[in-house]
């Protein structure tokens, strides 16, 4: 029972960051209709940038966000402007192929720069533990969870009640009408993609403490993000965060309760089961 509670709490905390990863994807999908299959590789890139800053200047991953966030946001803007935009509006297959190529490019650039060995980046908060009742909470998980939800709320607020957010939502709903209302659709799309990649910089720093990282983990992160994204009903904020929690808890419970293989498969099995019986995602209106 204690183990179960422990697993659920831990899964909830990690899952909220998965939710954040998928929010970035959902935002981009909603505005540009594209799904980025190099999503996980951008997260990995963010992690390695944090690692590089730690190795060079002994910067804590949380502090590195100050540098990594603008770098990744700019990179996102460049990638959209020069690689994705020329083929936007064509067959979706091409976007998938392009981003898969990008994934291979990023993954192996990291491989050539940092080598293939798993590396850990320490953080000042990593070893801090909080004990509530019988449940042990890692400091880094707590920070990750609180920041993820805070960011999700911030993003929601920005989308709902600022001009930038309104223009993003306008493009999301009806690009042509938005363009007629004087919204620069192309600029909004570049901006959303940049924000989507920027979010990943923060998520990378949140996930990093205590986690061994490898250049080839990107594809797996992409898959986890996709699971959450689809479970959440693609563009629904609440659904995506909920999907993140479901996948996070499934992962944690799976590794504790089941034989190693079955435990690791649990998130995928749950995904397939939900897809079979609730093809529209977890939340109704999406």
């Amino acid at each position: 029972m204690e183990e179960l509670l422990q697993a659920i709490v831990q899964g909830f905390f990690v899952g909220s960051t998965y939710g954040l990863l998928a929010l970035g994807m959902g935002l981009v999908y909603g505005v540009s209709g594209i799904v980025n299959f190099s999503h996980g590789d951008f997260v990995t890139l963010g992690m390695y940038l944090c690692l590089a800053l730690f190795s060079a200047f002994a910067l804590d991953p949380y502090v590195s966000i100050i540098v990594v966030l603008p770098v990744m946001t700019l990179l996102g803007a460049i990638v959209y402007q020069y690689l994705i935009r020329p083929i936007a509006g064509r067959h979706l297959l091409m976007i998938i192929q392009l981003t898969l190529g990008l994934s291979l490019l990023l993954q192996n650039a990291l491989m050539m720069t940092f080598g293939g060995q798993p590396t850990r980046t320490p953080s000042m908060i990593e070893s801090k533990l909080f004990i509530v009742g019988d449940v042990v909470i890692r400091g880094s998980h707590l920070v990750a969870c609180i920041s993820s939800f805070a960011l999700a709320f911030l993003l929601y607020f920005v989308l709902q009640s600022t001009d930038v957010g309104r223009s993003i939502r306008a493009v999301q709903q009806e690009p042509r009408a938005a363009a007629l209302m004087g919204v620069d659709v192309g600029r909004v799309q570049v901006m959303t993609f940049a924000i989507g990649i920027g979010i990943l910089a923060i998520a990378a720093a949140l996930l990093l403490p205590g986690l061994p990282i490898q250049p080839n983990q990107g594809l797996r992160l992409t898959v986890i993000t996709l699971l959450v994204f689809v479970l959440g009903g693609m563009t629904n904020f609440v659904g995506i965060m909920l999907g993140g929690v479901v996948i996070g808890v499934a992962e944690a419970v799976g590794t504790i309760y089941m034989t190693e293989v079955l435990g690791q498969l649990l998130p995928y099995l749950i995904f397939i089961a939900i897809m079979l019986f609730r093809p529209q995602g977890l939340v109704w209106r999406s």
């Binding site: 083929i87 064509r90 898969l100 994934s103 291979l104 490019l105 993954q107 192996n108 050539m112």
Partner: peptide, 22 residues
């Protein structure tokens, strides 16, 4: 000496091909 170089080049080639001759 440089594991991953051939994948890196594949990635670059496919991105280039999609942009130049989709």
């Amino acid at each position: 000496s440089l594991p991953g170089l051939h994948y890196f080049i594949y990635g670059a080639i496919v991105v280039a091909v999609i942009l130049v001759s989709p």
